Lab assay of single mutants.
Amino acid sequence: MQNSHSGVNQLGGVFVNGRPLPDSTRQKIVELAHSGARPCDISRILQVSNGCVSKILGRYYETGSIRPRAIGGSKPRVATPEVVSKIAQYKRECPSIFAWEIRDRLLSEGVCTNDNIPSVSSINRVLRNLASEKQQMGADGMYDKLRMLNGQTGSWGTRPGWYPGTSVPGQPTQDGCQQQEGGGENTNSISSNGEDSDEAQMRLQLKRKLQRNRTSFTQEQIEALEKEFERTHYPDVFARERLAAKIDLPEARIQVWFSNRRAKWRREEKLRNQRRQASNTPSHIPISSSFSTSVYQPIPQPTTPVSSFTSGSMLGRTDTALTNTYSALPPMPSFTMANNLPMQPPVPSQTSSYSCMLPTSPSVNGRSYDTYTPPHMQTHMNSQPMGTSGTTSTGLISPGVSVPVQVPGSEPDMSQYWPRLQ
């Protein structure tokens, strides 16, 4: 039975679970980093996980050691009161100082060594604690504590007292930064006198190289990059290397530039699409467009005044059976039934097929058609009795279509119309 579990990581490298990497692998990681390889490249070359490479390099940059820390136990506290007071002093002298600059000053002034120097995250935590204590304490208590930490007896009751030896409130920041720059020169002199001055200088240079600022491109470089971006948004590694040799930039910087440029292009394309949609959409909808001609068919113009009344309900007709019959029939052209047409008796099958359309009241044959006459024609229609054979009435077949029909004066039988409509 094995005491430890061995495995293979996602890159194909072998590791022992819970145990640190061998010293030979750690040394190779540092050597590759000094030669300029990126952590992701080191991870692929040595088949070590990216997190492990970053952790080893980060500890090497901070402490200069590649040895693993002790497994188990607690780390001794490195942010001692003396170190905290120095950090507060540096922050007062130059409020814009960075944590890694404070760390360098602690090393250069001999406050800490490589073994007990606090990390950048520890210094940031100390600065946050100082800021929170400043908010919790009152103004007087804060000034007393700062005077105690600074070891001075001057008056701290006013704002300019934060910067000793100065009279203009805006000047101390520059003086403090100048003092810090002077301390940086002392850093070089002190570290050069040490035993491991060369190694420390190499480590600091490598650290500065990794902690780079934003790349500033010249106009020629920007023009070359934009020209390549117009050709393709995704250049391959050969195109990037050719462009890197042409404009004297690292291939990694060119790759990052193209990634950022593609993101910018997507944002601009989104804005262009929004403007295009806004320009195509009308600002207001016309009133006429809300009524579609496919839904509402136009009603033909009436030929006679009587045809303006298109349904039985508008003429005072309360018989719903006839109203439904007229509205359900398709529109037909106007025609006239003459008196000489043969009077065919209704076929029983045809009569039964339209039995649902006729009223059940037996008085329908005896009703006159003056009910369908509009009010303004009552006088004219009353002067001509319906009993004469020459009287013409208008029957409504569908809305908007008038059918003048000659009705025999002897017997106005409704059943004569249905064979004609089939």
Rank of each mutant, 00 (worst) to 15 (best):
I42F: 01
G64A: 03
L57F: 01
D115N: 10
S6L: 15
A70H: 10
S6H: 15
Y61S: 07
N17W: 15
R105S: 10
K28H: 06
G138L: 12
G13A: 03
L21G: 05
N3G: 12
A88F: 08
E133F: 09
S43C: 06
S108I: 12
K28M: 11
Y60V: 02
L21T: 06
F98P: 09
N17E: 01
P39D: 05
N3K: 14
L21F: 03
L149H: 14
Y143Q: 12
I42K: 00
S54I: 03
A88I: 14
E62C: 06
L107C: 08
S6D: 07
E93H: 09
A131W: 07
S43G: 06
G7R: 15
S6V: 15
R77E: 01
D23H: 10
G36V: 01
S85Q: 13
I42W: 00
S24T: 11
N3H: 12
N3E: 10
D115M: 11
M148C: 10
E109Q: 11
N116W: 08
K91R: 04
R38I: 02
N114Q: 12
R19E: 03
R125P: 00
S43T: 04
A33F: 05
C112V: 13
C112M: 03
R77P: 02
L146V: 13
V84L: 05
I102A: 04
I45E: 08
Q89Y: 09
V126Q: 03
G51L: 05
D115F: 11
E109W: 08
S96P: 06
K28E: 08
F98C: 07
D144M: 11
V126E: 00
S65Y: 01
Y143V: 11
L149M: 13
L11E: 06
W100S: 07
Q10G: 06
E109G: 12
L146S: 13
D144H: 11
G36A: 02
L106R: 03
S119P: 02
L107N: 14
E31P: 01
C112D: 07
S49A: 02
K134W: 08
N150G: 10
P118H: 00
L46P: 02
P68Y: 03
S35C: 15
G7A: 12
L11N: 06
G18M: 01
L21W: 02
R105G: 12
F15G: 03
G18L: 01
I66N: 04
E82Y: 14
V16P: 05
L127R: 15
Y90P: 02
L127D: 03
R44N: 07
G72H: 05
I117C: 14
V83P: 02
L127P: 00
V30Q: 05
G141I: 13
L130T: 12
E31M: 13
Q27V: 13
F15Q: 04
Y90F: 14
K145A: 14
P22I: 02
K28F: 07
R92L: 08
L21P: 04
V84A: 05
L106Q: 04
V30K: 07
K134C: 14
V78Y: 01
E31Q: 13
T80F: 06
I102L: 11
R77Q: 03
G141T: 11
S122M: 00
A70I: 07
P118W: 00
V84C: 10
I102W: 03
S4M: 12
P81C: 07
G72T: 06
D104F: 14
V53A: 04
N3R: 14
Q10T: 06
S96W: 08
N116I: 09
S85N: 13
Q136M: 11
Q2R: 14
T25R: 08
R77N: 00
V120S: 07
N9W: 00
R67E: 11
Q136Y: 09
T113V: 14
H34T: 13
G51T: 08
E82M: 13
I56W: 07
E62M: 11
I45V: 11
K86W: 08
N9R: 03
I71S: 14
K28V: 06
E109M: 14
M137N: 10
L146Y: 15
H34Q: 10
N17F: 15
F15H: 04
I102C: 03
S74T: 03
L32Y: 08
E93G: 11
R38E: 03
D144Q: 12
A33N: 08
G12W: 02
N114E: 12
S49H: 00
V14H: 15
V8T: 08
N116G: 08
I123N: 04
